[in-house]
Design a protein around this nucleic acid. Structure first.
Lengths: 206, 206
DNA sequence: TTTCGGTTTAACCAAACGGTTAAACTCTTT
DNA sequence: AAAGAGTTTAACCGTTTGGTTAAACCGAAA
């Protein structure tokens, strides 16, 4: 795996480390396995990233920003809220399906060391006014009778919970509902519509 | 911790192992820590449960049955479906709040070794006709115009996803939404109503 | 009191782990 | 072609980990 001599070693390491950390978590990940997957040996791994912790910190940061980056789109106040929901559920579901282990990885590692992401959080809150603009947009659409009064935090949680959960618990879901890979794919496709509908209904007047 | 000489050693081990495995997962859990928490030494731990795997298998089985046991109530066909939802969301949320690490533990370990729970699943499917009775109940209430047509699997997933997610991702949620412990408690209390309402609305006619 | 099975312990073991070292290789610069 | 910095490797190190061993302890049955 990974043969090109010219390819950047650092990139190969990051790719491999990403794979292993996401799938197995900090405790389950072994430096030797990362080195093997990157096609190098352990010493070179330590040459590029001094320690497992340092390497992990880098990977976690990338993963966290990747996940948060997908939310960026919600702050575009040019799009009506309901339209945002429609597009977001679709895109977010696809994103998670392509990065199946990402959400659980973040959740697990933050559970393990809650301090881990406070610095990364500052990066988000730098652009605090975007959040305020979004809240204002919702407020306006509520006044206009398009939306009903609701707690955006709760609705947001509902949306990402319904999106993430089936993928996070995929083997569990497949096992209990006795699905094969195709069944699961169809189930998710159908799910997009249902989740979209539910969220929109839960923020619509009447 | 744990001083009573008379107390059953095996119980102390199970309690300690449960704590450690649930919080840290298989890879993060160390036999030494379990022994310490049980107030015994490592050799005695291996005397009772020959290996880490054996001990883990036992703990996982208990945890899985505990989680599944909470669903039992849904199969009581004496209660109308909507009433079931109301009661279930309330009870299930309380249960998870008391067992914060349980769902994530199950999800993680099943992801790690998907075969792990196939045998446990057989225990569930022994009582397959109960599921059929539940489906029949839903069908009847649909014919009676109480419920609309829906895929029970999707709605079930939505319900437990919305219940579990805030607890599984608790430190993440608290961090991003900047809550302290009290805030979070209030948020969850409010959540019960919202989730109940959303689920009921998504299965109600019109 | 002796004996005997279950219980508990300290000491030990081999493998796996994260990390280091020192030497060798490679490629560019002069 | 020599120097030099960056790159790569095999061998090694100390610690932690899951697991074992053999001996001591203890309470009940004989």
């Amino acid at each position: 795996m990974a043969e090109d001599k010219n390819e950047n070693t650092e990139e190969k390491i990051i790719t491999a480390a990403n794979d292993v950390f996401e799938k197995k978590g900090y405790d389950g990940a072994k430096m030797q396995e990362i080195a093997d997957k990157a096609g190098i040996n352990k010493a070179l791994l330590h040459y590029y990233f001094r320690s497992k912790d340092k390497l992990f910190e880098m990977i976690f940061g990338l993963a966290f920003r990747k996940l948060v980056g997908e939310l960026e789109f919600l702050f575009d106040t040019g799009i009506p809220v309901k339209e945002k929901v429609r597009i977001f559920v679709d895109r977010h579901t696809d994103f998670i399906s392509r990065n199946r282990h990402l959400p659980l990885f973040i959740i697990n590692e933050v559970n393990r060391r809650p301090e881990i992401f406070v610095k990364l959080l500052e990066g988000i809150y730098g652009k605090e006014d975007r959040l305020n603009k979004l809240l204002k947009q919702i407020e306006e659409e509520t006044k206009a009778g398009i939306l009903k009064q609701f707690d955006p935090r709760q609705i947001f949680l509902n949306m990402i919970a319904m999106n993430i959960f089936p993928f996070a618990a995929k083997p569990l879901v497949k096992g209990i509902l006795r699905m094969d890979e195709d069944d699961f794919g169809g189930f998710i496709a159908e799910r997009k519509k249902i989740v979209t509908e539910i969220i929109i209904k839960s923020i619509s007047e009447k």
